[in-house]
């Protein structure tokens, strides 16, 4: 085992280049992959909390907006004027 290691450090051994490549590839692969997994985990967790908050906020917003509204009767004149505006303002543009 230790002999093996020594040879490795010294750069001895028949299949040095192959082994080194595999090692590098494996370790590098693991490093990149785990890094990516962690990054993905972080990234996907942030919008999830955000999503919940955002939906809640959307939900509450309509309450808030409607609370400021008031329901009022339109007078005959108001209605007629409005209809007139719709009719005269109509323009067909393809």
């Amino acid at each position: 085992m230790s002999e093996d290691k020594e040879r490795e450090v010294k750069g001895e051994g028949v299949d040095f280049s192959k082994r080194a490549f595999i090692k590098t590839a494996l370790i590098g692969g693991i490093a990149v992959a785990s890094g990516a997994v962690i990054a993905k985990k972080i990234v996907s967790n942030i919008p999830n909390t955000g999503l919940a908050n955002a939906s809640v906020s959307d939900e509450l917003q309509q309450d808030r907006v409607m609370k400021d509204k008031e329901f009022v009767v339109m007078s005959k004149e108001e209605k007629d004027r409005m209809v007139q505006m719709f009719v005269s303002g109509y323009k067909y543009t393809a």
Partner: peptide
């Protein structure tokens, strides 16, 4: 096996990276 393992780790890295 070596060949495969190397390819896999590269593939894992690529897949994980792309999933981000």
């Amino acid at each position: 096996f070596f060949k495969e393992a190397g390819a896999i780790s590269a593939a894992v890295a690529a897949a994980a990276a792309s999933s981000v």
